[in-house]
């Protein structure tokens, strides 16, 4: 459903320019959960913003359901890392969740119903009348996920969605993502810098090189379903995949000389 071919992008021009994407090729099938990992600053977010139509890439092509992406495609939702900035503080939680549904032309009762349903799925059915800033960080990110779910997108983009929450909440949100994915027929593209996370939630892990980014690895994750935080993580297949992804992320350089802190 998503075909990315030879995608390139450079920010700025001249000596201060930053070559973020150096020809990325990637195809995602319907219903897949693909995790994209890579060293920090490698252009993961640039890739995601190009898919979302928020950024016009310098070159290459993104096809969504066969049509090139120009502007933001319908049937697509994004969950950003920075929930506190992407949720609107002047709206209640329920209004935040139902806002995108206006674009689908739903009337008020239908919007409210869909919002409540999505909030129930993330376990926040009681919080609709509250404001985002009255909730904890993990709860806010659940609201952001509910907002995306309510929109019922065919493709869900998640940009480091669990990067700003504590470890326990992070595990809960990972499992929440796996659970809701079972309910909706959704394709998910999840960007992360956490290798364990990518292996734990993904059907596939795509590894990008440092900037300018290219795809240096594409691994299928064949771990037993359903995934479980303790059992999956001690599965030999998990340990092997994690080491493989880790080596790809560090690249061919000797690791001792070029440590990248995020990937340790």
């Amino acid at each position: 459903m998503l075909e990315i071919s030879n995608l390139t992008h450079t920010y700025g021009s001249g000596p201060g320019s930053h070559h973020a994407l150096g020809g990325v090729d990637l195809s995602v099938a319907e219903g897949e959960l693909v995790c994209i990992v890579g060293p920090s600053g490698c252009g993961k977010s640039t890739l995601l913003r190009s898919v979302a139509g928020l950024l016009r890439p310098g070159g290459g092509e993104v096809l969504f359901n066969g049509a090139p992406v120009a502007g933001t495609p319908k049937d697509l939702a994004v969950v950003f890392q920075d929930y506190s900035r992407s949720l609107f503080p002047w709206m209640s939680v329920a209004d935040n969740v139902s806002l995108p549904l206006r674009r689908k032309g739903l009337d008020r009762p239908r919007r409210e119903e869909a919002a409540l349903e999505a909030l129930t799925q993330v376990g926040l059915e009681e919080a609709g009348a509250k404001y985002p800033w009255q909730l904890s960080g993990g709860m806010q990110q659940r609201v952001a996920i509910a907002r995306a779910l309510a929109y019922r997108p065919a493709l869900l983009l998640m940009d480091e969605p669990f990067g700003s929450v504590d470890a326990q909440t992070r595990e809960d949100l990972e499992d929440l993502t796996l659970r809701v994915r079972g309910h909706h027929a959704m394709t998910i593209l999840l960007i992360t810098h956490d290798i364990d996370e990518s292996v734990y939630v993904g059907d596939r892990v795509v590894v990008l090189s440092g900037a300018p980014a290219t795809v240096v690895g594409d691994l299928r994750v064949d771990l037993p379903e359903p995934r479980e935080q303790i059992a999956t993580r001690e599965h030999p297949g998990f340990v092997r995949l994690r080491a493989e992804v880790g080596r790809l992320v560090r690249g061919p350089r000797p690791a001792a000389q070029h440590p990248t802190p995020e990937t340790v």
């Binding site: 928020l54 933001t72 994004v78 950003f80 900035r85 806002l99 995108p100």
Partner: peptide
């Protein structure tokens, strides 16, 4: 105005 807030809405196609 937070650019991310604007982008969030744009991502939903507004």
């Amino acid at each position: 105005v937070d650019p991310l807030a604007k982008e969030t809405l744009r991502a939903f196609g507004f």
